[in-house]
């Protein structure tokens, strides 16, 4: 009986589809719960940094707060402005949310534990993260509101700018790993995690990740003090909720990407006894949590960048530096004969 079910799942075309859906659910359901608790963690951590208590009323230590927020969000009225382009207005938050979920297909949780272990995994992640800007532009334009449009314009310029240096960081990493496959990239870090030899690139990647996810200090697209709430000013209820979930899912995704590219993914810090007892996925989750904490820490610590400073940092500092470091890395690998697969 069990053998026949396993055979059906692994070999029958319909079985393979069912198995993939089960795998996707096994990843997405914990991810959504993680997103919910990330909002809670953000409020608690920021509260601790600012010497407040944070949410502490709903449930034990306020642990049910995310669910209370979700219920509040779902029971509110969805308002569609009369001047809005209705189809695009409704589509934009869905697009943001779907893209944030889509990228998780290639993230390996352990050696061989990826839903799609594709050869061009890193390019897939880069492609999906570069599409995130569409949800924001479409939301800004279809709202037919000047603040929303200003926010969308800022966001488009910002995300396109920081993608460029991010691309160079990715090229540097894959030069060292010799593969575009994420599992192979993690395996290449068995001896030393890439954040040690490529430390400046690690820093640039993390800062670019902040800019890509529109997080503080790069949250100009929202800019509540100048343009109210930026691109999602006209959204309410669950359509706002999808933007909110998408932003936090993107934060987790960017942390996972950083962990896989620079912090050795599922690998333990040292390949010896007490560390190897802990299974790989736990290590990856710990690394993601540490990076997420840094995201929140940065938000509570730094003031928002001015728009021209943001552009200057992206184009005049990160771009030349990452390009130079890429050439340097390639030169060192070539001169010392350290190129992988050579």
């Amino acid at each position: 009986m069990i053998e026949s079910v396993i055979d059906f799942l692994l070999n029958d075309p319909i079985g393979i589809v069912i198995l993939t859906v089960i795998k996707a659910l096994a990843l997405l359901v914990p991810l959504l719960i993680a997103v919910a608790y990330l909002t809670y963690a953000e409020r608690k951590v920021m509260a601790a940094i600012q010497l407040r208590k944070g949410p502490n009323v709903v449930g034990w230590f306020g642990l049910l707060q995310p669910f209370a927020d979700a219920i509040k969000m779902m029971t509110k009225e969805t308002v569609i402005p009369s001047g809005a382009n209705r189809v695009l207005f409704v589509m934009a938050p869905m697009l943001t949310f779907v893209l944030a979920m889509l990228a998780w297909a290639v993230i390996p949780m352990n050696d061989g534990w990826a839903i799609a272990n594709i050869n061009v995994g890193i390019l897939y992640l880069f492609a999906i993260s570069s599409l995130g800007v569409y949800g924001i532009i479409i939301a800004g334009w279809s709202s037919n509101s000047k603040y929303a449009f200003l926010g969308a314009m800022r966001s488009a310029a910002q995300m396109v700018s920081y993608e460029v240096s991010m691309g160079f960081v990715l090229v540097t990493v894959l030069l060292c790993a010799g593969s575009l496959n994420l599992t192979d990239i993690v395996r290449a870090q068995t001896k030393v995690w890439f954040f040690i030899p490529l430390f400046p690139m690690f820093v640039i990647f993390f800062i670019s990740a902040l800019a890509e996810t529109n997080r503080a200090p790069f949250d100009l697209p929202e800019g509540e003090s100048e343009i109210v709430a930026g691109f999602f000013v006209e959204y309410s209820s669950m359509s706002f909720g999808l933007f909110f979930l998408g932003e936090y899912a993107n934060m987790i995704l960017m942390s996972a990407m950083t962990a896989i590219l620079f912090l050795g993914g599922w690998l333990p810090p040292l390949n010896m006894e007490p560390f190897t007892w802990v299974p790989g996925p736990i290590w990856l989750i710990l690394k993601i949590c540490a990076l997420l904490f840094t995201f929140i820490w940065v938000r509570a610590t730094f003031p928002r960048y001015r728009y021209d400073q943001l552009m200057r940092l992206g184009w005049k500092v990160f771009l030349p530096f990452s390009l130079g470091w890429l050439v340097l890395t390639a030169g060192v690998l070539m001169a010392l004969g350290w190129l992988p697969n050579a």
Binding site: L123, F126, A127, S130, V133
Partner: peptide
């Protein structure tokens, strides 16, 4: 992937 990154992720954003 290059088609998506270059055309969809960059060129079409500028078009739009």
């Amino acid at each position: 992937m290059i088609l998506v990154i270059v055309y969809v992720g960059a060129v079409a954003v500028l078009f739009l």
